[in-house]
Design a protein around this nucleic acid. Structure first.
Lengths: 199, 199
DNA sequence: TGTTTATATGTACTAGTCGTACATAAACGA
DNA sequence: TCGTTTATGTACGACTAGTACATATAAACA
């Protein structure tokens, strides 16, 4: 795609048009070759756009890649509440594992979190555009479960997110053990019921 | 440090000497400026050693950085068994949180896991030289607890590692929530006792 | 409608890095 | 002692992050 319509060349192009072309080119590079492939050089060449323009709009290639990704996946974010906490969490975690193990999307997400360790602008973009919102939805669901008496009171609900979704991220990022639906079931069962024998 | 003793120049140096100098230079760069600072160019200049030599011994700068790090920290790996599972885990997790939040070491570990997402040789080195061994020690401690009747039977003990240490890594890598000793206590209590109300 | 301003553009740099090729010289092993 | 191994210096080419400068045009304003 990215048909580079022959243009006169020099001078100003409509901002919206440039933005659209740049994000499209970045998305293509991202999905084809991963986060590392999204460089200002390559995006500028593919868009086509001037490298100087990219530097003005995005602080780092990582931040551009993140915005392109968010615009591409376009949310569809849902956390259903059927009243059955276990079933709802199970559905969410299975969908999450399916996403992380998708051979197209999994490496992209791992790449983002990885690159964010050396790119503060990307880390900020990832939190603002991805992780914080997902965390919020989960915590809200936990809060309703707490009100319904399905969770112990006095828990820090944020912590539960790290023990479920965080555990999945761990298997994604450090690949010592497989990330499977069975793993999702196990972490859920462990956390809800506890693993210690009654004292 | 890294006194570059004036040498005749060209020709072969003793392998052990070169290795030592290279690892020392890599360690210095690593601790001073992070994983990203460990490039073959800079290490070769600081060691001093030839870039070609580095390429022969290490597949990527990340793999060199990992070996330098392992040689530097030199283990001291312990997982005490006092018979009290909760106390032992609490001690381990508090020490782990202290390590991850250490302003010198935390960024290094995050940098390694981050860089490993784009460097298969580093990922392999990290598993072989760091994460697998720690995982094994934890699982062994869990197995003894299971034998002692402190854990439910039939658990996948590997999963527990992800719900405890993995949860900490999650807070290290995606900094949406603080990583504190209180967090360590919370994940431990949640997992051992369970968070659901009795059915 | 005409003018100004904001901004995208092409070109051309500097500096750093990866990865490799080639010939040479010193350490190592037999 | 002598041949082999291996580290060395030098020099490439390709890619990337950033930046400087002059120029042309879209967008906004009079």
């Amino acid at each position: 795609m990215t048909e580079a319509v022959a243009r006169p060349g020099r001078g100003r192009r409509p901002s919206a048009e440039v933005r659209r072309d740049v994000l499209a080119a970045a998305t293509e590079l991202l999905l084809a070759d991963g986060v590392a492939a999204v460089t200002f050089e390559r995006v500028a060449q593919a868009a086509p756009a001037s490298k100087v323009t990219l530097y003005k709009w995005w602080p780092t290639p990582g931040a551009l890649a993140a915005e392109a990704y968010f615009a591409h996946v376009e949310s569809g974010l849902r956390f259903d509440d059927s009243g059955d906490l276990t079933a709802d969490l199970r559905a969410q975690l299975h969908a999450f594992v399916a996403t992380l193990t998708d051979e197209r999307i999994g490496p992209v997400i791992a790449g983002f979190i990885g690159a964010a360790q050396a790119d503060a602008a990307l880390a900020e973009a990832w939190s603002a555009g991805y992780s914080l919102e997902r965390r919020r939805l989960a915590v809200e669901r936990f809060a309703r479960a707490e009100e319904a008496g399905q969770l112990r009171t006095g828990l820090d609900l944020e912590v539960l997110v790290d023990q479920l979704w965080g555990a999945c991220y761990h298997r994604l990022l450090v690949r010592d053990q497989p990330l499977t639906p069975a793993f999702a079931d196990a972490i859920l069962d462990n956390l809800l019921r506890g693993v210690a024998t009654a004292p």
